[in-house]
Amino acid sequence: MILRAIITLTFLCVSYSSFAVCNISESEKSAAISKFWAVPEVINWKSYVLSHKGKKPIISKEIETETLKNKCFSKLSAYSDEGDHIHRWHDFYISQIGNKIYIDNTEGEFISLSKWRASPDGKAWRSNPSFKRDALTRAP
């Protein structure tokens, strides 16, 4: 009987943590946005987008929260506003505690920022010498 209660309790705890809801305060939203705009590849992407007349980098107005690996993350979706349409670049998942950042790559996989940096797509945004790294670093 005790074993059955322990198994049931364990199952409930695991189920609860899988469906836990993350809450995000305004200061946590601001911190996530600041972390996003500070990523070197994002700075390069922003410079690239701004170098094209009529285009501007934007992030989703609504910052969603997601539970990934039993931790709360803020989801920021990056787009370039092309005037007549918007083009999605990537979704970034920024931890509310610590400095973990994950990204959905071009294949739609959820990977760490360091793994993405090692991929051809990440390397292109990190190492392209035509990008000006000292360009505007604040949100437009």
Rank of each mutant, 00 (worst) to 15 (best):
M1G: 12
M1D: 11
R4I: 10
R4F: 10
A5M: 13
A5P: 00
I6K: 09
I6P: 03
T8H: 04
T8C: 11
L12F: 14
C13T: 14
Y16G: 06
A20P: 00
V21S: 10
E26G: 02
E28I: 02
E28G: 01
K29F: 06
S30F: 04
A32N: 00
I33T: 14
P40F: 02
P40T: 09
E41L: 07
E41Q: 15
V42D: 01
I43P: 02
N44L: 04
N44I: 05
S47G: 14
Y48H: 09
S51K: 12
H52Q: 15
K53E: 14
K53L: 05
K56H: 05
K56L: 07
K56P: 00
P57Q: 06
I59R: 07
S60R: 11
S60W: 08
E64M: 08
K69A: 09
N70S: 11
K71Y: 03
F73G: 02
S74E: 07
K75L: 09
S77N: 08
S80A: 14
D84Y: 07
D84R: 12
D84Q: 07
H87V: 11
H87C: 08
H90E: 08
D91W: 03
Y93H: 04
I94G: 01
S95N: 07
G98D: 05
G98I: 07
N99S: 13
I101R: 04
Y102E: 12
E109Q: 15
E109A: 08
E109N: 15
F110H: 15
S114C: 01
S114P: 00
W116N: 01
R117N: 14
S119R: 08
P120W: 03
D121Y: 06
K123M: 09
A124C: 05
N128M: 04
F131L: 06
K132Q: 12
K132R: 12
R133D: 05
D134I: 06
D134R: 09
L136S: 11
T137L: 10
T137D: 06
A139I: 07
A139C: 10
A139F: 08
